[in-house]
Amino acid sequence: MAEIDKPTLLEWYRQMFLIRQFENQCDVLYKEKKITGVYMHLYSGLEATGVGAVAALRPSDHVITAYRDHGIALARGMTPESAMAEMMGKRTGCSGGKGGSMHLASREHNFWGGYAIVGGHLPLAAGIALESRYNGKDDVVLSFVGDGASNNGYFHEALNLSAVWDLPVVWLIENNGYGMGTPVEVSSGQPELHKRAVAYGMKDMGRVDGQNVVDVYNVVSKAVEYARKKGPVLIESLTYRYKGHGVSDRSYDKMAELRDWQQKDPILVLQDYLCKHYECVEDELKDIEREQMAAVFKAVEFAEDSEVPTYEDLISHIYVEE
C-alpha cells in the first residue's frame, strides 16, 4: 500500500460506512414499503471500488455509472438527504422524484447519473469526454461498467470509439461476479475482462483488488493521469455484491461464497489497515460510525417529511422550454 495520510483514510472510511448504512437503511425501508417501485440495486460490498476510484478524481472531472448508483452518488458528494428523498420519490430528491433509485444525478458534482439500460451510459461517457478534448480541457471521465455490460454492443462501440478518438475515459469494470444471476465465466468467452483492452488498442491496467480501497485508489489514480495526458484506459476491479441483483430479485443461493467475500469485506479491510498503522484509531472509527448512522437517519427523516411531486412536476422538463 502506498502512503495515504490518516485524514484521507478516515474520510474514505466515513464514505464507505455511510454507503453501507445508507444501503442497509434502503433495504429496510423497501421491506417496510416506504421505498416502493420494482427497481433498487444496492451497492453493499462494492464500497471500496466506488470510494477509491472517485477519490482519484478532481472536482472538475466527471463520473457516470449504471443503475447501481447510490454508492457512487454518495462518494461523489451527493447528500444522503438528496439521495434518500429520490428513493422515496419526493420533490426534494436529486431528480425531483422523477428518476428514482436508478437515476440519481448531480450536475453540480459532475455526477452525470445512473443509467438503467445496461451499457447505455457508455457512449455518453465518450461524448462527455469528447467535450473535454474539444474545448482543450484536461478533465477526464470515470465510467463505471458492470461485468454484464461488457458483453453488449454498447461496450464494444463506446470503447472502440474512445480509442480511435483518444478520449480521456477511465473505463472501470466493477466485476462483482454476476450479471444478474449469470456468472461471468458463463457469459464471457474471456472472463478476464480487462483483456478486452487489447482488442481496442487501449491501455490495459489489469485487475485490482476491489475490496481494498487503497489499491483501487492507487490504480485509478494512475489511470486518471494516463487518460488526462493520453487516452482511454481499462481496469477491472474484482469485487462482490452482498445482496441480490436488485431488491425485487431472488438472492442467489451462494452462502459459502458470500461468507468468503465477507472475510475480506472492504470496510473491515480498511479498518484492519487503520488499526495496524495508527494507535487508538478505534475510538475515531466508532465516532465516524455513530455520525454516519445519525446522518442516514436524518436523511430518512428529511425524505419522509418532504413533499411528493405535483402535477406541475409531472409535466415539467419534458422539453427545455425557454
Binding site: P123, L124, A126, G127, I128, L130, E131, G153, Y154
Partner: peptide, 15 residues
C-alpha cells in the same frame, strides 16, 4: 449506438 450515444453525452456536456 455509439454515434447517437456519444452525441447525447457531448450535448449534455455543452456541445
Amino acid at each position: 449506438m455509439a454515434i447517437a450515444g456519444a452525441a447525447v453525452g457531448a450535448a449534455m456536456a455543452g456541445l
